[in-house]
Design a binder for these strands. Structure first.
Ligand SMILES: [Mn+2]
Ligand SMILES: [Mn+2]
Ligand SMILES: [Zn+2]
Ligand SMILES: [Zn+2]
Lengths: 124, 124
DNA sequence: CAAGATAATAGTAATGATTACTATTATTTA
DNA sequence: TAAATAATAGTAATCATTACTATTATCTTG
């Protein structure tokens, strides 16, 4: 992976913002530094950075949000303002942490594990 | 909400399958019963059924999967075969349940809460 | 420091899932 | 039965993302 100023700038933007920006937001932001950058370049770099595990991607409401925080953490998504908050929870008491300490109201708990299932392991 | 045979058939398909089908899969399936049904009709009905809480929708890998199981449950997504398994976990020991009892290998834990955040509640 | 090798870019076209539109048809209600 | 209107089929439009291509920038190696 070579380092272009486009790639450096995109990575810098994601690393220095904690608002989980979308591709379009990043595109508008990087254009203030590199006005003639292509939207295709932004998407291509985002995919490369995700593939090389330099950033993370997560889909919220059908839109991909990018995350420069690589540490193991969870999120709270507000369906009203659309902010995707970082959470750092012990799994035992995460519900009371959110509702009592942070004061958020939980409408939905979206919990999903990804990995390789039992039957797929048998086949290898 | 009136009841057309298209709507009845779509709901029936989702309620009687536990494989979390996509819009396109449902479209192909319902076409065996109603050959000239429109893809637009499938999408329109899926949205209506979700809005009226008769089915649930969840996005996995950028594709929307529909779920006729309205009970509170979690999922295990296999990145190899793409199967989205239902889980019914007590939150205390869900990891050992998945790894030890079910034999799946967890690569990712995707945990997200949706609701109304503290600051949004203040404004109302 | 060249110079060749090739990864990355800008610009644009294509894709694919979903939504919008419109004239027609089916369902409900009285 | 007939008016009111929700739903439909078919198609066009949208929008995020990906693919393509000729050109440019970066890396490597002598
Ligand atoms: Mn985060
Ligand atoms: Mn399910
Ligand atoms: Zn909020
Ligand atoms: Zn599997």
């Amino acid at each position: 992976m070579r380092y272009s100023k486009q790639r450096k700038e995109i990575l810098e933007i994601i690393k220095t913002t904690n608002s989980h920006p979308t591709a379009d937001w990043i595109y508008e932001r990087v254009r203030t530094q590199i006005p003639n950058i292509s939207l295709g370049t932004v998407y291509r770099n985002l995919r490369q950075l995700v593939d090389n595990d330099l950033i993370h991607a997560r889909t919220v409401n059908g839109m991909v949000h990018y995350d420069g925080n690589l540490g193991d953490h969870q999120h709270f998504y507000c369906t009203d303002c659309g902010i995707l908050y970082d959470l750092d929870l012990s799994l035992e008491d995460f519900v009371s942490e959110i509702t009592e300490n942070l004061g958020h109201v939980i409408h939905e708990c979206d919990l999903q594990f990804n990995g390789i299932c039992n039957s797929c392991q048998q086949e290898q």
